[in-house]
Design a binder for these strands. Structure first.
Lengths: 291, 291
DNA sequence: AAGTGGTCTAGACCACGTA
DNA sequence: ACGTGGTCTAGACCACTTG
């Protein structure tokens, strides 16, 4: 593992370690407990009221407990039924709305659209979590994982100065035994150290980071097509120049400091990406590719 | 144009026309005024308080009026400063948060991340609006536009019965004079009639629909790679089997009734798609492609 | 005219981060 | 210990849809 920093898997040395990077503080907490886990979206026990309510209403919708006219009861009656205020009901409904389960429109009852369309924030960041949520067996083979100086471009991507140390990981990812994706990830050194401490064959890096107390707050995913280069050809077994579906993942902590930057290239026909937008809020952007 | 329905461009005949489709009512309002425009996101005059506030804070952020420590004032002081309640401030901030402009984290001030990352809901649906927002000159050539019976698959996509009439449009889209995308769109007949009424060379179909009072409420965008077929080769001028970036757009009205279904194929290197997610809400889903 | 979701207010308490 | 954002409540009025 890297030069400085504490153990991650076992007893941790420090309660917190923060480091400065060009003026911003990297937010990085080492937990004492091994299993305490990060802040995964727990819609069960530890969640607050409106989250539990959202989960409960989700189940009620799936079970068809709101009748079969395809409409939800009014907010007022839901509030009474569940013994909470209307504000809390609206908070819960906003969550279902954001996931595309129900509509909302002034003047009429909410309409039930369907069930579960999007994935949790964590499943989006983690190939392993994603594969498991699909009932597939995720696999990984680490080609290399090393610390080196950042190039100018990489420095910009992680908001570091060129020449600062970064951790550079190249991994081939599988579904079952079939290679589907080649992942090129760089981490700032403070985050990378936690990754390097993992066993070489460990599956989920982001999962381990999350469990180590690294707080993922925002992510940005850019999707386009890229022609396979020599490395892609060698490891994915495709023809030179094949169009690969590329997902560039960027994740930041709550202060906006970059936690990882990754270029993931999928073989054609293995994945697709779906975004849900509502007129109120949209999160997708179509961009012109640079010429 | 089709059999029944009123004029769209000029004086409209009916104030509202709704039709039944397998149990659900299509929500479709014909405006009397020509220019009254749909419900485009007006963050200016007609908007409610928190939307105006969001727009105002957005400008304030861009102008650097909150100091240069990269943090926002507290919600309490913003409420006082703008003369509104904290709830309204939070509503406005939620909008900025959803667009990735600011972070939020219990215990500390909000951090300013950047400016304007995503596009409006309408720009996502409309190639024309999107191109213009980029300063590019959008173009379109209609290959065909006709009414025909829906296949089983198409019926399912538009929640119609197989054999019901649909409007089928094939258009080649340009940026400047360069063809970049081939668009295969189907509309339910009631919506399609408005499209057919347009001049053959009119640019923005979704824009015209929006202006005609068709209310777009939700959309879903699925992105993957598809091999170019004979039609793609002929119109886009690419080689047979080239990997094209495909965006499947689906849009529904506030009741969840489908308004359009479109298969758009972009030449490689012309566009990319970016999604912003926060730990609180995610709208992206990665899916396994069917085998 | 009645019912519904959208907006706004005022106040309270809590969980978390920072000093 | 203090300030911050997150949650929750109770009540009010408005804009819109529907019968």
């Amino acid at each position: 593992m890297g030069a400085r920093g504490g153990t991650v898997g076992g007893q941790s040395v420090e309660k917190r370690s923060s480091a400065r990077q060009r003026g911003t503080t990297v937010y990085l907490v080492w937990m004492v407990s091994e299993t305490a886990g990060g802040n995964g979206k727990r819609s069960g026990a530890g969640a607050v009221r409106y989250q539990k309510l959202a989960a409960e209403m989700r189940r009620a919708i799936e079970a068809g407990k709101f009748g079969n006219d395809g409409r939800l009861p009014s907010e007022e009656s839901l509030a009474e039924q569940y013994g909470v205020s209307r504000g809390t009901v609206r908070n819960a409904l906003a969550q279902l709305r954001a996931n595309g389960l129900v509509t909302s429109r002034r003047g009429t009852r909410r309409v039930i659209l369907g069930t579960a369309r999007t994935q949790s924030f964590h499943e989006l960041l983690s190939f392993t979590s994603w594969a498991r949520s699909l009932g597939e067996e995720p696999g990984a083979r680490t080609i290399h994982a090393r610390v080196r100086a950042a190039t100018a471009v990489e420095g910009e991507r992680l908001q570091l100065d060129p020449g600062d140390d970064i951790t550079d990981v190249l991994r081939l990812r599988f579904l079952g035994r079939v290679p589907v994706m080649l992942e090129r990830t760089i981490y700032p050194l403070q985050v990378g150290e936690a990754v390097e401490a993992l066993a070489p064959d460990s599956l989920s890096h982001t999962g381990a980071l999350d469990a180590s107390g690294v707080v993922f707050a925002d992510s940005e995913h850019t999707i386009d097509i890229v022609a396979a280069d020599a490395t892609d050809v060698r490891l994915l077994g495709c023809a030179e120049g094949t169009g690969l579906l590329r997902e560039v993942r960027r994740a930041t902590d709550p202060t906006g400091a970059p936690l990882l930057w990754s270029d993931d290239r999928f073989l054609p026909g293995t994945v697709s990406f779906t975004v849900h937008n509502s007129a109120a809020v949209s999160s997708l952007a179509r961009r012109r590719a640079p010429r």
